[in-house]
Simulated scan of single mutants.
Amino acid sequence: MVIAVVGAGSIGRRHADNLAALGEPAVLIPWRSFDRAALEKRSDVKGMVIATATQVRLELIDLCAAKGWPFYVEKPLHWTAQGVAEIYNRAGDLAARSMLGFMARYHPVVQALAAQDLSEVYGFTFEIGHDVRQWRQNWSFPDSYAARPDGGGVLLDLCHELDLALALFPGLTVQAVSSVGHADFNGVDFASRIALADPQGRAGTVAMDYLAPVSQRRSDLAGTDALRRLDLLAATLTVDGPSGSDTQSFPHERNDMFRAITRDWLRLIDDPDAKLHPLAPRLSDMRASADLIADAWTKRRFTGTAKMAF
Rank of each mutant, 00 (worst) to 15 (best):
P70H: 06
A234K: 05
L28W: 03
L279Q: 02
A296W: 04
W139H: 10
W135K: 07
E127G: 13
L100P: 08
A260I: 05
F302W: 04
D270A: 05
P170G: 03
D163N: 14
A309K: 15
Y210S: 04
V180C: 04
W297T: 14
G23Y: 00
S245M: 04
Y122R: 12
A197V: 09
A203Q: 10
R301W: 13
G181R: 08
G7F: 05
H107R: 01
L211D: 09
R36W: 11
L100R: 09
A96I: 10
P30Q: 03
P199C: 03
Q82D: 14
A176T: 14
D117H: 08
T247F: 08
F141A: 04
Q55N: 13
V56Y: 05
H182S: 02
L94F: 08
D143V: 14
L63I: 04
A51D: 04
L164I: 06
R133L: 10
C159V: 03
L227D: 01
E161S: 14
Q137N: 14
Q248I: 11
T236W: 06
D220L: 14
A222C: 12
D271I: 11
L22Y: 07
A176C: 13
G187S: 05
T236L: 02
G83N: 03
F169L: 01
S179A: 00
W69V: 06
F310L: 11
A197L: 12
T305F: 13
P142W: 11
A38Y: 02
R202C: 04
V5K: 09
H252N: 03
D291L: 11
H160C: 06
D143F: 15
L227G: 03
G223H: 05
I3D: 07
T173E: 12
K275D: 12
H78Y: 12
P70Y: 05
Q134Y: 02
D231H: 04
L233N: 10
